[in-house]
């Protein structure tokens, strides 16, 4: 790697002040797993890294609101999230997704903020968080803002973060009795990057689905909602709507051929796994499943 400098600010404010514009050769580094993978082959050659490891502890914490809502600081490692009793209680689908996200060693280092800011569609948490209607907290020189997770992703490896902005955390609203599930499907080896990630979340009114959220990752350029699936399921009994939801998902998702499968095959996978993820959510305990 090309030589670079390293700054280690003690506060978020200082970190934001140092980052400046995106083209200034200054990059923030949290866990660094994804960043190192781009720096080693020379794809990124920053002049200075700004480490976020020393900023206020609030950004590495998991807080629970009285209603069961969660705030997870951006510097929280994925491993801490995975082992958090609060996350397991209030958003068990997140815990479940983390179990198969990369490996223990990477989760020990990788942070929630880095995971989201990377903008890689193959990552697992974006579709899960979209299905849970989570919000991203963003701070910049002009103050703070919150956006829906689905609005964070603009195009392949590109987010809607402005230059000089950092993700500070994620809030997951209280899930109450909502059911949710996530399925990750790999087509080469078992621990490969996924060819497809599908997440769904809904309330049950008797056996009728309400307030459905469905999201897809990996197969599409960006993680995104599948609104046609939500429409196909809304107000229906699951058993009556699975086929239609699968067809809607396959029609809506814009997929491409790559090493993990042709576009035609991925559409078939989306069709099949849409049904499976809904069934998995139906079978889950309230709030999700582990």
């Amino acid at each position: 790697m090309k030589p670079f400098g390293l700054a280690e600010p003690a506060s978020l404010k200082d970190a934001i002040a140092m980052i400046g514009d995106a083209d200034s050769g200054v990059r923030p580094i949290a866990g660094g797993s994804a960043l190192m993978l781009m720096m080693k082959p020379g794809i990124l050659q920053p002049e200075t890294l700004v480490s976020l490891r020393g900023i206020e502890p609030r950004y590495s914490s998991i807080e629970t609101a009285g209603d069961g809502g969660l705030f997870i600081g951006a510097m929280t490692t994925l491993r801490r999230m995975e082992l958090s009793a609060d996350v397991a209680r209030h958003a068990p689908v997140v815990t479940q997704a983390l179990r198969r996200l990369s490996n223990v060693r990477v989760r020990n280092i990788a942070t929630l903020g880095g995971h989201l800011a990377h903008g890689d569609p193959h990552l697992d948490l974006p579709p899960v968080l979209i299905a849970l209607r989570a919000k991203v907290h963003i701070a910049g020189r002009d103050g703070e803002r919150q956006i829906d997770v689905e609005d964070l992703f603009r195009s392949y490896l590109e987010t809607s973060l402005d230059s000089g902005e950092l993700i500070t955390g994620v809030t997951v609203p209280a899930q109450g009795n909502r059911k949710s599930a996530y399925i990750k499907h790999t087509t080469r080896s078992a621990d490969d990057w996924p060819a497809l990630g599908l997440a769904v979340s809904f309330s049950l009114d008797g056996d009728v689905l309400r307030d459905v959220r469905a999201a897809i990752g990996a197969a599409t350029d960006i993680p995104q909602r599948l609104k046609s699936v939500e429409t196909a399921l809304e107000g229906k009994r699951a058993a009556d709507a699975l086929q239609g939801a699968g067809d809607a998902a396959a029609a809506e998702a814009q997929v491409h051929s790559d090493a993990r499968g042709s576009a035609a095959y991925k559409r078939e996978l989306i069709r099949v796994f849409t049904g499976r993820v809904i069934r998995k959510a139906m079978e889950s305990a309230a709030g999700g499943t582990i």
Binding site: R188, S189, A190, D191, D192, W193
Partner: peptide
């Protein structure tokens, strides 16, 4: 090894 997949323990 990211894109040339050799068997892991789950395989």
């Amino acid at each position: 090894l990211a894109d040339y997949r050799i068997p892991g323990i789950f395989d």
